[in-house]
Simulated scan of single mutants.
Amino acid sequence: MRLALPQPFEDLDHTADVGVRVRGASAEEVLARLALALGALLAGGGAVHADAEERVAVAGGPGLAGTAVALLRELLFRFATARRIPAEIEIVRLGEDAVEALVATGRYDPDVHGEGVDLKAVTWHAARLEREGDGWIGQVVFDI
C-alpha cells in the first residue's frame, strides 16, 4: 500500500515537544502514516511535490517501535542534510529488526514550507507501534 500526503494524524499534547499519533489497519500503514506526519510537520502545510524516489533500508529494534523510530530518524537526517521532505511512502518490509521502504520526496522550498516545524530529533519517549483492538496504533514525539 502506497500512501501520500496528506494523511490524518492526531497531535499529542506534550510540553515543549511535538507528538503525533496515527491509526491504521496494519503495522505498515501506521508506519507510513508516521513518516508522512513527519513530512507534514516539516512542510508546514505547504504542498510537497515528489520529484525523486529511493529505497530506504535501516536496521531497527528493539521491537516495532524501535524500528519506527529508526526509520523516522533516517528521514529526518535526510531532511537535515539534503532538504528532502517525504511526500509518498510504501513500506516494503517491516520487522522488529529492520524496515525497507520506497520513499518519494520533494525538495524543501522556504517560500512554500517556511511555516514548517523545526524538528531536531525523533525521541524514544512514548514511542509506540503496536496492535490496538482490531487495528494498529503508532505514535512518536519529536524534539523541537
Rank of each mutant, 00 (worst) to 15 (best):
A32P: 00
L64T: 01
G66D: 03
G66L: 00
T123H: 10
A35S: 15
L38I: 07
R55P: 06
L94P: 04
L36G: 02
G135K: 04
A32H: 03
A121T: 10
G116H: 07
A32N: 04
W136M: 02
V18L: 14
I144C: 15
A121D: 12
V48T: 10
V48D: 09
R83I: 14
R21A: 12
A127C: 10
R55E: 14
A65V: 06
E53V: 12
A47W: 08
H125A: 14
G19P: 11
G60Y: 02
G114K: 11
G60P: 02
G63S: 03
A37S: 12
H14M: 13
L41E: 03
A25W: 04
R84C: 11
A126Q: 13
E88T: 00
L3R: 01
A37L: 03
R2K: 05
F79A: 13
W136Q: 04
E96P: 06
V140M: 09
L31H: 02
G138C: 08
V112A: 10
G138T: 00
E28G: 05
F9I: 04
A52S: 14
T123E: 10
K120A: 13
G46V: 07
E74A: 12
A70G: 05
A87R: 04
I85G: 06
L75R: 08
P62M: 01
A4V: 06
R2G: 03
G138H: 04
G138D: 06
D13W: 12
V48M: 13
L42V: 13
A27M: 04
G138A: 05
